[in-house]
Simulated scan of single mutants.
Amino acid sequence: MTTSDNENTPPRISINLDDIKGHEGDSSPGGGTPKSSTGWDGKLRLEKKLELVNPEALSDPEYSDEEQVLSGETIEADEDLLDDYPLDTEEIDCVHARVSSVPLLRLERFTAVARLCLRQNTITEIEGFSCLAATLKELDLYDNLIAHIRGLDDLTNLTSLDLSFNKIKHIKKVNHLTNLTDIYFVQNKIGKIENLEGLTKLRNLELAANRIREIENLETLTGLEELWLGKNKITQISNIDSLQNLKILSIQSNRIRGITGLDNLPHLEELYISHNALTSLSGLEKVMGLRVLDVSNNQITSIKGLKHLEDLEEVWASYNQIGDIAEIEEELKERKKLNTVYFEGNPLQLRNPTLYRNKVRLTLPQVMQIDATFVRVS
């Protein structure tokens, strides 16, 4: 070992194979090595003290062990990454494989791909997919480095497109994909809902965790059943009257002060509006088919407004300002389908945490779950 003026090299540790216990099948308690159902799991148990080969590295800031330095290696794009797939495969999953260039995957050799998943790679451009246009129905580009939507012109058979966790600022060049039923834009940098006209078959639109301030431009999405808008900057529920088939609306973690705009949604079944600035449940008068209501983490003082909702199955109202057990009985006792309620973190629970759950159970005997506790089995 030599000393030089190069950068520091970390200390090296020498392990004698005689120090390793259990490697040859020792099954004694405490002495054997854990094994999974498939055998060796790679966990070595070291019982002797480790010996430092180069102790001078700890005291000499200029120490460098040049003999142990390995030359750098550049990993090129793996053009053979998909060679194990049969050419008539219908599904390709290439997740977290350091793919940066789709053309280098040579997708043109595959004749029947219906689902292509390229999650968690370093793709910056949507390109190289046109050769799959005749068969491709699901394209998943979740968690890449894509900043612009383009390169989808020929993929008119797509039914599902996932561009979540990218760097997209504008929704563009997707409204010709008229067979889409599901589209995902979660966790991008989108500031406006736009350019979705004509997607009449769309059933599910995911726009959570963006920078949207207003619900708009959804008029033509008449088939939409699920709309996910959580973690944006929306201040009001509006412009959704045309969504006559909407069943699920998620608008959690926004800046909403009141429940509005739901009067003309006859099929709405689930409303998720936690982590906002609500003070009451006014606005649910005409949502007769509601089954699930999540209003947790608001400033609601009263649950008045639920008595008429005969299909209610779940009410999540934790961490509000609800304190009246008599009001809960009045609003919810006759809701025969109700099976789950959450009231923890309210004055109702905080005033007497020991008796709280038993009080709710006696007040709502039909309920099977109170907070995270099952109190009755069906």
Score class of each variant (00 low, 15 high):
Leu207Gln: 05
Thr89Pro: 00
Glu344His: 14
Leu82Ile: 10
Val186Glu: 15
Gln366Asp: 06
Glu269Asp: 05
Gln366Glu: 03
His308Asp: 02
Val99Arg: 00
Arg150Gly: 13
Ala57Trp: 07
Thr200Asn: 03
Tyr356Gln: 05
Ser101Val: 06
Lys169Met: 13
Tyr342Trp: 12
Leu17Pro: 14
Asn352Lys: 01
Leu284Ile: 00
Arg98Ser: 10
Thr354Leu: 13
Glu67Pro: 07
Asp18Leu: 08
Glu62Lys: 13
Asn204Val: 15
Glu310Thr: 12
Leu207Gly: 00
Val360Leu: 09
Gly261Met: 08
Ser242Ala: 14
Lys201Gln: 13
Ile300Leu: 04
Glu329Arg: 12
Ser253Lys: 08
Gly223Ile: 01
Asn144His: 01
Leu249Gln: 00
Gln244Glu: 13
Leu364His: 01
Pro353Ala: 00
Glu127Cys: 11
Met368Ala: 15
Pro10Phe: 04
Val99Asn: 00
Arg211Tyr: 12
Gly22Trp: 10
Gly191Cys: 03
Pro55Ile: 03
Ile15Val: 11
Glu219Asp: 13
Gly323Thr: 06
His308Gly: 05
Phe343Thr: 02
Leu50Cys: 06
Gln369Pro: 11
Lys169Asp: 12
Asp41Arg: 15
Ile273Cys: 08
Asp154Ser: 13
His96Asn: 08
Lys337Arg: 08
Asp143Val: 09
Pro61Glu: 12
Tyr184Phe: 10
Leu82Thr: 00
Val377Phe: 15
Gly31Lys: 15
Asp182Ser: 13
Gly323His: 04
Thr373Glu: 13
Glu331Ala: 05
